[in-house]
Design a protein around this nucleic acid. Sequence first.
DNA 1: TCTATTAGTCAAGTTTTTCTGACTAATTGT
DNA 2: ACAATTAGTCAGAAAAACTTGACTAATAGA
Lengths: 97, 97
Amino acid sequence: MESENTCPVEGLLKMLSGKWKPQIFRIALNGSIRFNTLLRQIEGSNKQSIAVALKELEEFGLLEKKVIKLKPLHIEYNLTEKGKSLIPVFQQLEHLV
Amino acid sequence: MESENTCPVEGLLKMLSGKWKPQIFRIALNGSIRFNTLLRQIEGSNKQSIAVALKELEEFGLLEKKVIKLKPLHIEYNLTEKGKSLIPVFQQLEHLV
DNA sequence: TCTATTAGTCAAGTTTTTCTGACTAATTGT
DNA sequence: ACAATTAGTCAGAAAAACTTGACTAATAGA
């Protein structure tokens, strides 16, 4: 009883594909993340790519954006329930390698 | 005790990144695979891309190449132990989604 | 002899992804 | 008034990934 035309791993790969999304998601596992903070801690990254990655992670429902304060502007991204559901997968992979 | 600079998921993503590797790997979960057979069953694919994907899966140690017969030429690729170790991850992801 | 099959390789071109640098807009600090 | 911080956007360039079509080399079948 194999699934021939769908694959959950392909879904995961799609959600986390690209140069920066895996790193951003992993940092988000430790708590709230912010645009400029990510930009500084992920070396080699750039505004545009981080912005696109955050938007995609949001669109896939793994992160949710939250405006904390308007003065001064403060926006945070947090794992959604869907995002948190991936934690066991990460843990399982850790045991493997 | 978080791992800040390594990530097993990033490893998985790297091994299976690209347009065809996930599909090839998934087909390999069902048994031996062959170059021309893949080419026919994966619609939209092409020689070059399948060849590169197989080579990369081999280099990452997920598949192993085996020459069965030289006349007529018959080459097979099978999951390695490392490749098989990913099966539970696929199963876990299936339960998730 | 000619064509097909096997499993590829190679160079060139196309497409997709990523990066760079300029710009926005509101607010705070000097 | 001027610079800095926040969180971005936009267009164009550069880099990476993917595709195409021609080719190889050994063997089998008509």
